[in-house]
Simulated scan of single mutants.
Amino acid sequence: MNSSPERWPRAERLDAERVAEALYTQTGVRLTVQGPCPGGQVGAAYVRWSDGRRSVLKWRPHSTLADVTAGPLSVADILRSADYPAPETELAVQIGHAVVVVQQLMPGAKIDDLDHRGLEQALALNRLQAGRLADRPDIPPVGLHLSEDGVGYCLHEPLRRHNRRSAALERWITAVGEDSPDQLVGYDAVHYDFHPGNMLADGGVITGVVDWDGAGRGDRRFDLVTLRFGIHAKTCEPGVGKRLDDVLDAVPGDVLRLAWAHMSLRMVDWAIRHFAPTDVEHWLDLAEQRACQ
């Protein structure tokens, strides 16, 4: 089944003109909005500085600058220092309840269909995330929401009510959460939304990984499970899914179970609340491949 990019959970949509005007009022920085970013960059828009340079304007509603700086922005900064293609933050400002961030515009175009070459590069990038936050225990671990709802996503009640399959899946997710911490353990950098829609490439080479809004500390292999769910929503070169499944088979069971439970909850809940019943079945099919293991 080939799902469009709009079938991936997204943040609130950005009113870029209004945000740019508020940014100018508060800081005196004038940015010209050029249009929304495609794919995984919902909540983001292309902007141009007065000197002609182009960047990406993002916003995080109901956030504080201190939290964003201590978490996602720090993770991206640390990885970039290790030659990881994460965008540089050019400006970050608190405006009301939201944080407005202007980031470097990375080269390349978003990946529509992941091929074997792209998968190999994604796996290499994931390995670069290992141990990068060993000196930064202050960076918060990423949450899993296996026992309690997230804020606007990872809701349990929709699964309980939808049908027998989703209710059974929710019981398994809750059982996993009862025996485990509700945060990832570890000192790897975790992107949290590591799927092809958040990857840019040029000439077959990955040139950027964007949308670090949920980044934090934990186990990098969480991102490989996210990637597996991400390619389920798209077409990809034959054999890519099987190859990634083989990689996941080697992940320790306790880590894989936590990550799989989280992504199953995230995607099935979102599909129930936003998409057609056939989409729900699509995500249940994938979730059940490893649920109850």
Rank of each mutant, 00 (worst) to 15 (best):
M1S: 11
N2Q: 12
N2C: 07
S4C: 08
W8E: 02
W8L: 05
P9A: 13
R10E: 15
A11N: 13
L14M: 14
D15G: 03
A16N: 00
A20L: 01
E21R: 13
L23N: 00
T25V: 12
L31Y: 08
V33H: 00
Q34A: 09
G35R: 13
P36K: 04
G39T: 08
A44R: 02
A44M: 10
V47L: 04
V47S: 01
S50P: 04
G52T: 13
S55K: 02
V56W: 01
T69M: 15
L73Y: 12
L73D: 11
V75D: 11
V75T: 08
D77I: 02
L79K: 09
L79Y: 02
L79V: 15
D83N: 10
A86C: 05
E88Q: 07
I95T: 10
I95E: 13
H97Q: 13
V101P: 00
V102C: 07
Q104P: 08
P107L: 04
A109N: 13
A109K: 14
I111Q: 01
D113S: 10
D115R: 10
D115A: 01
R117C: 11
L119E: 00
A122I: 06
A124W: 13
L125A: 01
R127F: 07
L128C: 02
D135F: 11
R136W: 12
R136T: 02
D138A: 05
P141Y: 05
V142W: 01
D149F: 13
G152N: 14
Y153G: 07
E157H: 04
R160P: 07
H162N: 11
R164V: 02
S166E: 13
A167C: 11
A167G: 06
A168V: 05
R171Y: 09
W172H: 06
A175V: 05
A175N: 14
V176I: 15
G177A: 09
E178S: 15
D182T: 10
L184M: 13
G186Y: 05
Y187S: 02
Y187M: 10
A189R: 03
H191V: 06
Y192A: 05
Y192C: 04
D193R: 03
H195N: 08
H195P: 01
H195M: 03
P196E: 07
N198F: 11
M199V: 05
L200R: 08
D202C: 02
G203F: 08
V209M: 11
V210K: 00
V210A: 09
D213K: 04
G214S: 14
A215T: 14
A215E: 01
R220I: 04
R221E: 14
F222I: 06
F222E: 09
V225D: 00
V225K: 04
V225N: 01
L227S: 07
F229C: 05
I231A: 04
I231Y: 14
I231T: 11
H232F: 12
H232N: 07
K234F: 08
K234T: 14
G239I: 08
G241P: 03
R243I: 04
L244D: 02
D245S: 15
L248M: 13
D249I: 02
D249E: 15
P252H: 09
G253C: 04
D254P: 06
V255E: 08
R257W: 07
R257T: 12
L258N: 06
A261D: 14
L265V: 05
M267N: 10
V268H: 06
D269Q: 13
A271H: 03
A276T: 04
P277E: 06
H282D: 14
L286I: 13
A287E: 06
A287K: 00
Q289N: 06
Q293Y: 02
